[in-house]
Design a protein around this nucleic acid. Sequence first.
DNA 1: GCGTCCAGGTCTACC
DNA 2: GGTAGACCTGGACGC
Length: 297
Amino acid sequence: MEIRVPVTHNFSFKRTALSHGWCELLPFEFEQEGWRLLRVIDLGAQRPVSVSITGAKQSLVLNVRQGLGKRAAAKVVQDVRHMLRLDEDLTEFYSAMSADDEFAWIERQGAGRLLRSPTVFEDVVKAITTTNCSWALTVKMVTGLVQSLGLEAADGRRSFPTPQAMAEAPLQFYTDVMRAGYRAPYFKELAERVACGELDVEGWLSSDLPTPALKREMKQVKGVGDYAADTLLRLIGRYDGLALDSWVRGKFARVRGRGRAATDEKIARYYSRFREWRGLALWCDMTRDWLEEEAAV
DNA sequence: GCGTCCAGGTCTACC
DNA sequence: GGTAGACCTGGACGC
């Protein structure tokens, strides 16, 4: 079954799919040769489905190896629109970037949309797996989690586990199977709080709280500190945080500092002119070389 | 083969 | 509110 989803003129599928590391974490899979993004989408009571997403002229092409009912097809399209941020209005951001010669490439290439998960819960779990470890260990942790607790689609791939499934898993699962180390109790506690309704992380998407207050709320979750909270804020569409980590500091030194390390204050000063868009401007600046200009379109 | 360092940080106790 | 030290894991590196 094929579904076509129209996109706006300034949307780049390649720049969005490859916007950060999420495309490498199950239940996402990314094939750069052929530029195909795979995603297992949860359909609630029904078995999850694997969806192949490719970019075409002014549209996305979704392929599912089975027929879908009206409601299931609508859920697939809704999740894809959310993940690739098709409904996000970046007009103001592009206007700010186009006013600066060094950042004008961002609108030309349709960059600035950061791939996210269908649920905030999944993004919180993944953000915690990125802290204080190598990327290889992040991949290992997420793979173990999805392969063990996710529901199986018809092709054998698995969906991201629900808060309920994670809450029911014993603490030993997180240490022995997921290899989460000291983070193990954080995942267990997060899943339990979300599953029982005590913590509404999905509500962060539409929260009226000012960003500093929302960030404080995010940091109430064990395992979420400054970096992880800034990452999550960016994923829900608030771009004033810089989410500085060792990778960004190193990249800034290479790209903007002629190889010399800069303090966090200096990095913040550099992007301060972009005000509420500074976090997104920084991320685009740091990832510009991930894709050649001609290849981005 | 073994020890050390460190990676896309955070938590807690202490001051 | 600021800071030091502990914390899991696993790959890279030096010896």
